[in-house]
Structure formats: C-alpha cells, structure tokens
Design a protein around this nucleic acid. Structure first.
Length: 580
RNA sequence: GCCCCCAUAGUUCAACGGAUAGAACACCAGCCUUCUAAGCUGGAUAUAGAGGUUCGAUUCCUCUUGGGGGUGCCA
C-alpha cells in the first residue's frame, strides 16, 4: 500500500535530483498539499529555492517541469508549472486507493500518532470556585481543556489531567457569612436548588448587602482568619457549604462528560505554599514589610511587586499556586499546561518568575500558560458578583429543550426517552462545537439569542452529515447482498470526489497541527469543510442508484468520510448519531 | 499613566508571508412522488487609516484611531 507520505517523499527526492547546484545542508523542500483541484495534489512553490539559487522562480518551475517529465514517475499523472508554482497531479487510482485503504485499515485510529509516547504532560483546567456555579467562562475552559487532552492523547502523548478546586479564600467566606446571617437553616434540598446555585445565591446576596454595609467585608476577612486558625464553627459551616457546592459542580461535569485524573483542593495545598514562602524569606528570596506582609520585588523583570502573604499571614491566591507547583513537580512530567483565561497573563508571568526564583522550576516540568480569550455577553464582561452571568446548567437545559423540539418535529414517533437521549447528545454537540470553533486566543461574543443554533456551521450539522451516511449504509445492507468484490477505485474521479479524497487525507496533519498549536478550532473548521464537501457530493450523486461497480467504490468512500467525521468529532468531545 | 491583546461582509467567525481573502447567519431567487431539507444550488457585500520591510502583506515593523484585558493584600 502506498501512503500519501511516501508519495510526498518521492516527489521531494526527485526535486532534489533535478538540482545540479549545491544547496545549503539545512534547506528544506517545502512540498505543500494543494488546496484546489486545478492545483493537483501537491504544490511546490519555487520562491525560497529561487532566493537561494538567485534564479527566477518561474524559470525554476519550468526547469523542474522539464526534468521531471523526462523521468516519467510512475504514480504521477502530470506535472504543471503555473508561474512560480509547480503542481503535481497523482494518478487518481493510486490516490483514492491510498487514502481509502489507509482509513479503512486504521479505522478509529486513523489520524492518530504513536510518535510521542515518551512525553508525559500534565494539564490543569476548570478550577471551579465553591462559592458559585460555573458560568460560560468556565465552560470554555472546560471544553478547551477536555479537547486539548484528547488531541494530545491522539498524538500519542501521555496526558494526566488535573483539576484544582478553589475552595478557600475570602470569596468563599463571603457566601458563608451571608448564609450564616440570612440562611435561616435552609438547604439545597429544602429549597430544591442545585447545591452550587444555592451557595452562589448567598455570594450574590453578600455583594448586595455589603454595598450598603461595608463592615460586612471586615467580618468576612475576620472569618477567613478564623478559618485559617481552624475555628471549628467556621470549619463546620465551610464543610457543609462546600459539600453542597461540590455536589452541584460534579453534576455539571457529568452532564458535560468531563472527568479528571487528579483533583487537588486549594485548602489542602495552601499551607505547603506558606511553608515555601517562609523558607524563601529565610533565604532572603523575598522580604517582609513593616506591616508584616511578605512581598517579592520583581521590578527588575518589569513585573512589579507581588504580595505572597498578607499582613495577618493569611495566604493569597498565588500562595497556593506555589504550593501546588511543588506538588505537580512530583509527578515526573516533561511539561505542564495551565489552562487559564488571558486576563491572567500577567499573573502567570509573575507566578512562573516566582517559581524560578524559589528554585521550583529547575526540577519541575516545562510550564506553559495556555491563555485563551474571555467570553463576553452583549452587555459586556460577566460579573459573578453581580449575578450577571449565563451559567452552564441553565444553558445546557435550554439547549436540550430546544433540541427536543427539533427531534420531535422530525421523529414524532420516537419514545419520550429516545427523544430526550437524542436531544441531549445533539445539545452537547451544539454547545461544544460553538465554543471550540473559535480560535482559543480570540475572545468569544456570546449572545444567548443568536449563538445557539442547530443549523449552519454547527455540531448538529456534522452529526446530521454523519447520520446521512449511516442511513445510506444501513439501507444498502438491507438490500440484497452482492458478492464480495474487488473495489475498483479508478471509477471514482469526479471533481467533487477528488476534492473530498484530497481533503480526507489532510486529517492526520490537522490533528497534529491542532495539538501542536493548541488549537482545536483547526479541527472544527476542517470538519465543517469536510461536511460541506460531503453534502455537495451527496446532492450530486445518488450513491445507491449508481452502477454496481461504482456503487461499491462509492460505498467504500462513504465509510471513509464517516470514519473521519467520527474520529474528528470524538476529539472535540462530540458523539455521533446514526439517526437524526 | 504604563504593559499586553484585538480590529476582515449588515452580524458572528476563517485564512503556515503565496495563486481568485473563505464560511455561516441574515437577505433575495431556486431545489423534497428521488439515499434524511438540521441539507443543496445561485446572488450582492469585507482586510479601520497612514507609512515601511518583501519578488509578494489580512499576516511582519512604526504611527494614528477605535475596542478589550491587566497593572488587587479579588480569585
């Protein structure tokens, strides 16, 4: 079986042979995959070579065309020089056969790689707070983290996922204080409210009340101090409310199909952070101010000053991240990725610098802040404190209801259970795809009215495309079975088919790029284009009514498209449906 | 004030420095007795402004304008 990569390699070799001049040893022949039909399957732009050889790129292209034509390479149909470009057209039989056979042999492993088995990486994402439910910002974080994990694993990397629960700090005390004052002993159960929402309501209540009465903030600060001192009453309340919140948070993860290999609690690690800071103080790596606060001066790195412990010696956010970094060091990882929004860019520069100064980076993994853009609502940035958020649970619920309506409209005879199961899968697809189709570094504008859709460039569109293929395959298998026959791939060859085949063969490179560039949207956009191309093919050709030999070839081709769709969607965390 | 990021069609998004800047939504005109119309076909509309680097710039550099984020002893 000839693989695409081998064809590519042979073309590069023949290009090298056609050059008589000496080339720099590090010169790379950048043979590109063509994007358009009239450009064949491979393209060699002669610009770079023309600079090295000080020759006209068009002249070079002419030269190559002449030399390579003389060689008569067996798998090539023709070579064309268009200006400074050299386009290679592969014999179609070879081409279809190479692609289809590879996909059908590798099946759910097509596009995967086993190259990076020795690399171990950790990825931390989600990091929910136990004082409120997760909102759209967390959703983007969860989906990016989950999808990157899948992409890394598809590239053969050994990945461990980490979640950090932010379960202590002044914000937690705020909701606790509000509950203590105005909770009247209510519980999520008694109020029939999901635990994280129940707790979150008191957080919002605190912010409202403290507007009128600033002394509440002082009370919250006192409560934090009592918490760090281990006051049993405060700890009791804390445990009770955290349990409620965590139950709610876990329910949301289950809904999203997300789980973690390791879960750390800020309350367990902040002390270790304090120890590290205190030891660093003794080594004069940071200093104590007159008011007792411990601070590190990073002015020489243009990062300002950073407080590591408050005057009352309670810890701040970075304290626990320092403690956590030490814990992560023990996992013997090569690389560690923190998935956190871009508003923390400065914070992570500070954190990594502090870890450097404190000597925690030398034996640890290579640390990386994976920064992604914030999610905005039409009215601007979301503010949890003021309750101006779209939370995940409500959004999922709304999507499922919308999906149910659509499913029922099309399949009124389904049982309610089936409608609901199908709707859940479709709603998840819509939600995941919506957030993953954006380039991570860009902000996302989310409009509750306009952003939720099942048509156009959406997850359900891709599921629908898959279901269409399955429908044909099912229908065919019900028809009388024809004898097993040798597939004649040379029968395929319309423009649409060639485009589609060419595009299928890009899949492994897309996964590689999406993983290396930490960009699942590359895969999302690839799948959309694949879907568009398939649907075009679908409307052009009636597959089941094709001539028997052609039909057999086309059915094989369908299997390939379905396989790639399924493999790709899986990496975005989207399930396929055989019926929609 | 200082630092970072962004600016593409009416809207939301694409485009390793490379060939004619692609989609989707919305709008207009078509396509279901034919493998699922959550689909397909056709139509109009875009690189904020001014310089520069380059054979070639949406992409790199500088300035201007307009947005966002950061500069917390919030997380």
């Amino acid at each position: 079986m000839v693989k695409i990569k081998e064809i590519q390699k042979k073309i590069v070799e023949s290009l090298k042979e056609a050059i008589t001049e000496d080339l720099p040893t590090d010169f790379i022949f950048n043979l590109e995959r063509s994007e358009q039909l009239e450009q064949g399957e491979f393209t060699f732009p002669c610009f770079q070579l023309s600079q090295v050889l000080k020759k006209d790129p068009k002249e070079l292209a002419r030269h190559f065309k002449k030399e390579l034509d003389r060689k008569n390479i067996d798998f090539l149909e023709k070579i064309e020089n268009v200006g400074p470009y050299l386009n290679f057209f592969i014999k179609k039989t070879n081409f279809f056969k190479a692609i289809c056979q590879q996909i059908l042999e590798e099946k759910d492993k097509f596009g995967y790689s086993s190259d990076n088995q020795k690399q171990k990486i950790g990825i931390e994402y989600s990091a929910p707070n136990t004082n409120k439910p997760q909102h759209l910002g967390h959703l983007r974080n969860n989906l990016l983290g989950d999808s990157l994990t899948s992409l890394f694993r598809a590239q053969g990397l050994k990945v461990s996922t980490f979640n950090l629960i932010n379960d202590r700090g002044i914000h937690i005390c705020k909701s606790m204080l509000a509950y203590q004052k105005w909770g009247e002993g209510k519980t999520p159960k008694s109020e029939k409210i999901k635990g994280d929402h129940f707790v979150g309501n008191y957080y919002v209540l605190f912010e409202q009340k403290s507007q009128e009465d600033p002394s509440l903030l002082t009370e919250a600060q006192e409560m934090l101090q009592q918490w760090e001192e281990g006051d049993p009453h405060v700890l009791d309340l804390w445990q009770k409310m955290n349990k409620w919140a965590l139950e709610g948070i876990e329910e949301t993860y289950q809904k999203l199909g997300i789980s973690f290999d390791h879960v750390n609690f800020e309350s367990d690690v902040y002390n270790s952070g304090k120890d590290i800071v205190n030891k660093a103080l003794k080594k004069d790596l940071c200093c104590q101010r007159e008011d007792g606060a411990i601070e590190i001066d990073l002015e020489e790195y243009n990062l300002g000053k950073k407080v590591l412990l408050r005057p009352d010696q309670t810890s701040v956010y970075i304290t626990q991240d320092i403690g956590l970094a030490k814990i992560y060091n023990d996992f013997n990882l090569d690389r560690f990725i923190y998935v956190v929004a871009s508003e923390q860019n400065h914070y992570f520069r500070v954190l990594f610098k502090v870890l450097d100064i404190f000597g925690l980076n030398q034996e640890g993994p290579q640390r990386e802040h994976f920064s992604y853009g914030l999610v905005f609502l039409p009215e601007g940035k979301m503010k949890s404190r003021e309750g101006e958020v779209v939370d995940i649970d409500e959004l999922v619920k709304k999507m499922e209801q919308m999906a149910k309506v659509e499913v029922f409209k099309r399949s009124p005879n389904l049982s309610p259970l089936e409608v609901s199961t199908r709707a859940q899968i479709i709603a998840q697809a819509a939600l995941r795809f919506f957030f993953l189709k954006f380039r991570p570094d860009q902000k996302v504008n989310f409009s509750p009215e306009d952003s939720l859709s099942f048509e156009g460039d959406t997850g359900p569109y891709l599921q629908y495309t898959y279901a269409r293929i399955q429908s044909i395959l099912t229908k065919n298998s019900k028809e009388k079975k024809e004898k097993e026959q040798e597939i004649n791939f040379s029968l395929l060859g319309t423009d649409t088919e060639i485009n589609l085949a060419q595009f299928l063969s890009f899949f492994p490179e897309i996964i590689k790029r999406a993983s290396q560039e930490r960009n699942p949207s590359l895969l999302a956009h690839y799948l959309l284009k694949l879907g568009h191309q398939f649907n075009e093919f679908y409307h052009q050709s009636n597959i089941l009514k094709s001539q028997p030999d052609l039909k057999a070839a086309r059915l094989q081709f369908l299997l390939c498209v379905a396989q790639v769709l399924e493999n790709g969607l899986k990496l975005l965390g989207i399930k396929v449906l055989s019926k929609m």
